[in-house]
């Protein structure tokens, strides 16, 4: 029994979520092989070979895989996947895009966003915005699964010594093409991997006021997130959204500022180790999940917090 993990990367660096996915694969048991599909991705393959508990790295290096378009990548994964008991990918926007296409082509159901491996065929995953945890068992010949990174501790990025094998198969469906990309630039840690996250909601009132959070975040070495209300109001870009429809985070410390705590937002952060809420409405639902709540005007409390750090 061997497990194929699709590596998440940007052609120059391996994304951290891959390490959590390898951890899930290691819990299932069996040889773990990493597939690095991309263009000019030799450096990623080298990094992948260093990852602990990986036995083999498969590299498909070709321009058709440059942006991991699902129409081109899925047939490759299907071809390789038939030889494996499990095919795993991190539940990132890439993984979610490609893997269901793979599952359908293999004629098996996919299990989305597992947070726990019970056994090689049984897994736990949240449903209803995290308000229930389902234990599901798969009888599929190839189990196709996306892994919620925050559910698994990452394996070490170094210490492994996997062999690297080139894959020659090229599948170009010719029905889709990459046009452009607009990536938000940030010097702060990446939201999903950060140890501390400071998030703002509608209570921030405008985008400029997020500077208050950035100042606190910089002192803490934290990433900055937002609620859907803040994103919809145009305060910050949508890739900062934490919640059922945004990113799922589980940092050591989550500071929610001016966020009421709607079900959809809680779905994205309630597995954080310590939750702090700063809100002037003491009835706000966020206080029901907060370990430490401060009922105060954020425009006074946040600058004071920054000075205190």
């Amino acid at each position: 029994m061997a497990i194929l993990v699709i590596a998440e990367h940007n052609n120059s660096a391996l994304a951290a979520a891959t390490l959590n996915t390898v951890a899930a694969a290691a819990q299932i048991g069996g040889d773990v092989h990493l597939l690095v599909a991309g263009a000019g991705c030799a450096a990623v393959a080298e990094a992948a070979a260093q990852v602990a508990s990986v036995a083999k790295v498969l590299v498909a290096d070709h321009t058709v895989y440059a942006h991991q378009l699902p129409e081109n990548l899925a047939p490759l994964v299907v071809e390789l996947g038939k030889g494996y008991s499990h095919v795993l990918a991190p539940a990132t926007s890439n993984g979610k895009n490609v893997l269901p296409r793979v599952a359908a082509l293999l004629d098996v159901e996919q299990i989305s966003e597992i947070v726990k491996v019970v056994s090689a065929d049984t897994f736990q995953r949240p449903i209803y915005a995290g308000n229930a945890i389902a234990t599901v068992q798969s009888s599929a010949a190839v189990k196709v699964i996306t892994v919620r990174a925050t559910g698994f501790d990452a394996v070490a990025a170094t210490g492994g010594s996997a062999s690297i094998e080139a894959i020659a198969t090229v599948s170009d469906a010719g029905i889709s093409a990459f046009v452009s990309e607009e990536l938000a630039k940030s010097e702060r840690p990446e939201l999903t991997g950060a140890k501390i996250v400071v998030s703002g909601g509608r209570g921030m009132q405008n985008g400029d006021n997020f500077q208050l959070l950035y100042a606190v975040a910089d002192k803490l070495g934290a990433a900055v997130g937002a609620s859907r209300a803040a994103v919809d109001a145009g305060f910050v870009p949508n890739d900062m959204q934490v919640g059922q429809t945004g990113k799922i985070v589980a940092p050591q410390l989550y500071v929610a500022v001016g966020i009421s705590g709607a079900i959809q937002h809680l779905a994205g952060m309630k597995d954080s180790k310590v939750i702090v809420a700063i809100n002037k409405d003491e009835e706000a639902p966020i206080f029901q999940v907060a370990d430490y709540g401060l009922v105060a005007d954020l425009f006074e409390a946040v600058p004071e917090l920054e000075r205190a750090l």
Binding site: V108, E109, I111, A134, V136, A140, I275, V289, Y292, A301
Partner: peptide, 24 residues
């Protein structure tokens, strides 16, 4: 279907937090 739901449970509840009085 190849997938069977064995059980559905409520997520672990968070222990009750406290309200603090000041930033300090």
């Amino acid at each position: 279907s190849t997938v069977k739901t064995l059980k559905v449970e409520a997520p672990a509840a968070r222990s009750a937090g406290i309200k603090v009085k000041s930033v300090a």
